[in-house]
Amino acid sequence: MLEPKFAQIKQHIISKIKSAQWEEHSKIPSENEFAEQFSVSRMTARRALTELCEAGVLTRNQGLGTFVASFKSQSSLLEIRNIADEVKERGGQYSCLPITLESMSAIAPIAIALGVEIDSQVYHSVLVHLENEIPLQVEERFVNPEFAPDYLQQDFELTTPHEYLCKAAPLTEAKHTVEAISPNAEMCNWLALYNEEPCLQVIRRTWSSNGIVSFTRLVSPGSKYRLGGHLTFKRNK
Rank of each mutant, 00 (worst) to 15 (best):
C166T: 01
F156Q: 08
N32P: 14
G56P: 12
F215S: 02
E54H: 11
S30Y: 06
I28N: 01
W190N: 05
Q62L: 14
I107K: 15
I13C: 03
E179I: 08
E196H: 07
I212S: 06
T206M: 08
N61E: 07
Q153A: 12
P221M: 03
L200E: 01
E133C: 11
E146C: 15
A192R: 15
V122S: 04
T160V: 03
N132G: 12
F142D: 00
I99E: 05
E157M: 12
Q37K: 14
R42L: 04
K27T: 01
V178G: 10
F215K: 01
L127K: 15
L231P: 09
N61C: 03
G65Y: 09
R141G: 03
V87W: 00
K224E: 12
A20S: 10
E179C: 09
V219P: 01
P183V: 00
V128T: 09
F156L: 06
S70P: 15
Y225E: 10
S75M: 09
E51A: 04
L78N: 13
M43C: 04
Q21R: 06
Q93E: 07
P135T: 05
E54T: 07
S223I: 05
C188M: 13
Y94G: 09
R141D: 11
K72S: 13
R47M: 04
H176S: 10
E186F: 01
Q74I: 03
S39N: 10
T159Y: 13
E51Y: 07
K224Y: 13
P98H: 11
F71S: 08
A185R: 03
E31N: 14
S73T: 12
Y151A: 02
W207A: 06
S220G: 06
L191C: 11
E86K: 10
E133D: 14
Q153T: 14
S19V: 02
N236D: 08
G56T: 04
A69Q: 11
S70N: 15
T66M: 14
S76K: 15
K167I: 08
P149R: 06
V68C: 09
K10R: 15
A69T: 09
L52G: 05
L114S: 03
S125R: 12
K237L: 07
E24R: 05
L97R: 13
S220M: 07
P29G: 02
E23S: 06
G65H: 11
Y164F: 10
K16R: 12
A45N: 03
L158M: 14
S125Q: 11
G229I: 00
N82V: 00
R46P: 04
K88F: 03
R204M: 05
A169K: 00
F38M: 02
Y151D: 06
V57C: 07
L200Y: 03
H124S: 04
A108S: 15
Y123K: 04
F34E: 04
Q74R: 14
V202R: 11
V40K: 01
T100N: 13
